[in-house]
Design a protein around this nucleic acid. Sequence first.
DNA 1: ATGGCGTACACCGTACGA
Length: 261
Amino acid sequence: MKLATWNVNSLNVRLQHVLDWLDANPVDALCLQELKLPDEKFPAEAFAQRGYQACWVGQKTYNGVAIVSRAAGVEIQRNMPDHGDPQSRIIAATLPCADGRPLRVISAYCPNGQSVGSDKYAYKLDWYARLRDWLGDELRRYPRLAILGDYNVAPADEDVHDPAAWEGDVLVSAPERAAFEALLGLGLSDTFRQFEQPPKAFTWWDYRRFAFRRNAGLRIDHILASHSLAPQCRSCVVDKAPRGWDKPSDHAPVIAEFAIP
DNA sequence: ATGGCGTACACCGTACGA
């Protein structure tokens, strides 16, 4: 069972990249973020032609998340319940597994936060607190759970190309890292760190200043697995290739493989 | 200190991302 996540920075612009990537990487489920399109513009037919189902929650211009999967998802949850928040950042679905135990998959686009101390930063921390509360409920209902997405947090200095330059800045500030750690405290594992990894492994590189060429990136896209799923994780890797394609997303996909049927 | 690049909407400059 292979699960992947990719912030595509507009599915309108990146659809061909996603389809090409799926042809080469036929994962069981791909979580997408930053669709930047309304529900009625989601290209469900393009995925169906390749044997993929999808569920999504869109939004004009901003945000928007989806789960594209071989098997149809059930118990689909769009946004956190009682969220009272117009931003489309969460979708969850239950996928069947051959061993009869369901797998809960969540695609998450966590807020960026703009700058420390801004209104958007306060929204980010509040959103993380709501995510933690709701995830606690989800974990009780679905012990086998994976939450994949763009967390907009680099958890540790080794996830930052230049920790001194980024010190205290948005994406690495102590309150943001604490909010991320609080998710792990629910009983989730950062699957990437379950394995030996090359140094300077990142998932996002700024479009400006040749950041990708200089590998001046951050690791902000993560695959978290519950304690009943994490021991089955066999690998977690970043696929840097699409970041080098023509007109790329600024994020690269992350893929985790699990030893479940 | 700023903007640098890309996307969306459409006010063809401004908001936003990370």
